[in-house]
């Protein structure tokens, strides 16, 4: 893992600073991870270890969730979330670039207007959206879900990317244009490398929002073979009892692919390129 670039330009910390940082980091790590460890341990116990402390080690929770279709749900979630993340990121880069580099009519209105949908509580939009989806035949389809998630993640991503882009000097683009590069080349060869951490951050946001979203998936996906992971997880919450072991195993299984996906991506954020680009 490469360290953030700026860290090279701070004075080396003294022993006190080191100790304080270490303590803080351990506290943060503990609070973030402890609840998850609790779930991990519970996922190997009957009843998730919730109903009695003296549980034996078991794989049954995992067997049960895969018997009830989790393999399929992982695939569905991956297809929908990866597609929506890609679509959302590409659209946002395009829109953010236009907003941050050009002046045009209605720019402010458009920029503010993008927030339009974000000011509504999504639960009131569920019924109108459902009716609209039904007429467009988008219920129980990958496309419908991908479009939904794209539409719901684009506003934040555009704003976030504009926020990053305004810190990148316009002179960079202009120099390249003078050298004969097209706008697309500028985006691809100059902006993208500089903005990589920003893209990764917004893509992570888009992906995880889709990955954990429940309300829309519930309303728009009723066929078992199309369901996503959060729906799969909810099925263990019954009326008279909850299968806690399965809930915990499902939660672990829901978290794992995120790691497998983001470990390599996070590793690629190389800050060295940024320095080169600005010169």
């Amino acid at each position: 893992m490469s360290a953030p670039a700026s860290s090279r330009h701070w004075r080396d910390p003294g022993p006190t600073a080191l100790a304080v940082s270490a303590v803080l980091a351990v506290v943060v790590l503990f609070v973030m991870v402890y609840p998850a460890v609790y779930v991990l341990i519970g996922s190997f116990r009957p009843g998730g270890g919730l109903l009695s402390a003296t549980g034996t080690f078991t794989f049954r929770n995992y067997v049960r969730i895969f018997q009830s279709g989790f393999g399929r749900f992982i695939v569905n979630s991956l297809v929908i979330c990866v597609a929506a993340t890609l679509a959302s990121t590409v659209l946002s880069i395009m829109a953010a670039y236009a907003f941050s580099r050009f002046d045009f009519r209605f720019k402010r209105a458009l920029f503010t207007g993008i927030l339009f949908g974000q000011v509504f509580p999504w639960i009131v939009l569920i019924n109108p959206l459902f009716v609209a989806f039904a007429t467009m035949h988008l219920i129980n389809s990958y496309i419908g879900m991908i479009l939904t998630y794209t539409a719901f993640t684009v506003p934040f991503s555009v704003y976030m990317l504009v926020g990053y882009l305004v810190t990148v000097p316009k002179s960079l683009d202009e120099a390249a244009i003078i050298d004969g590069a097209s706008r697309w080349q500028v985006i691809w060869y100059i902006i993208c490398p500089v903005m990589l951490p920003g893209f990764v951050a917004t893509a992570t946001y888009a992906f995880l929002l889709c990955w954990t979203e429940y309300l829309f998936a519930l309303a728009f996906l009723t066929q078992t073979d199309l369901k996503t992971l959060p729906l799969g997880l909810y099925q263990f919450f019954g009326e008279d009892n909850v299968d806690w072991g399965a809930v915990m195993a499902a939660s672990v299984v829901t978290t794992l692919p995120v790691f497998l996906l983001f470990l390599p991506i996070q590793g690629r954020i190389s800050p060295g390129r940024i320095a080169g680009a600005v010169k």
């Binding site: 009957p46 009843g47 109903l51 003296t54 549980g55």
Partner: peptide, 9 residues
């Protein structure tokens, strides 16, 4: 469910 958890433990 309670009886089952008791028997397990």
């Amino acid at each position: 469910e309670i009886i089952k958890a008791y028997e397990d433990a």
